[in-house]
Design a protein around this nucleic acid. Structure first.
Length: 249
DNA sequence: AGCACA
């Protein structure tokens, strides 16, 4: 569905072009309305957002403006003090060399400078945490693979909502919901690891309305789809191993 | 924190 010109849109101001790029990538394809499976489209604006001094959340005023009363937004308030959000934290040791976290290299934009200005007051919230997300601590994750494990889902979680959230994501293959008494977990297979990584990052902590636990927790599955189960006994000394379902068939 | 199906 594409109602050009009729969909609401908004503009968000970031501390730097790099931060805006990171947020854009993080939010791209976010399902913000699971009911209709509506997906968020994020682009770099054609022009910088102008913000009146002392006013927050503006952008649509048409009143005549006075150059002295407005502040031109710069692309380079000292980017050095900008702490990237958790999704772009330094890669752990198992991170494959080939994978560069989004937001890692924005060199094309660093020379993009406009004259530095006094910084506007920035709210101390993560620039990529819109409504619809909950902060989510995700200790103990597994190496990236093509299958995501979804946790922190209440027993009331509807499979339909999960499907509407994930089935529209690029690379989605299949989904399986598992009821576990008081809680629910879910497995999602993607066509490739990168698709899974993208969703792991963008939907981490996303609110599942039908669940009563706030945000979902996304982890890489311990046992991804399509990975052959290894032999339990692959000792080199030739001793007979215990047959597994692979060997005894 | 809870990881099934092949």
């Amino acid at each position: 569905m594409n109602f050009k010109g009729e969909q609401p849109m908004g503009f968000a101001l970031f501390t730097s072009a790099a931060a805006a790029m990171a947020a854009k990538d993080a939010l791209q394809n976010l399902v913000f309305d699971p009911e209709t499976n509506s997906v968020l489209r994020a682009e770099m604006a054609k022009k910088n957002l102008y913000v009146k001094r002392g006013v927050t959340g503006v952008g649509t005023e048409t009143a005549p403006f006075d150059q002295s009363k407005r502040l031109r937004t710069a692309s380079d308030y000292s980017t050095s003090h900008y702490a990237p959000p958790g999704a772009f934290a330094p890669p752990p040791s198992w991170m494959p060399q080939s994978y560069m976290p989004p937001g890692g290299s924005f060199d094309p934009y660093t020379g993009y400078g406009m004259p530095p200005l006094q910084p506007v007051a920035q709210p101390m919230v993560s620039p990529v945490a819109p409504a619809g997300y909950m902060p989510m601590q995700n200790t103990k994750d597994n190496p990236p693979c093509n299958t995501l494990f979804v946790g922190n889902l209440g027993e009331s979680t509807s499979e339909g909502e999960l499907r509407s959230i994930f089935s529209g994501q690029p690379g989605f293959r299949q989904m399986k919901v598992l009821r576990q008494g008081r809680s629910t977990v879910c497995f999602i297979e993607f066509a490739d690891v990168n698709s899974a990584i993208a969703v792991h990052n963008t939907l981490q902590g996303a609110i599942v309305t039908s669940s009563d636990r706030g945000g979902m927790r996304l982890q890489y599955s311990k046992n991804p789809y399509g990975r052959k189960k290894e032999f339990v006994n692959n000792n080199q000394d030739g001793a007979p191993g215990v047959p597994t379902s692979e060997t005894s068939g």
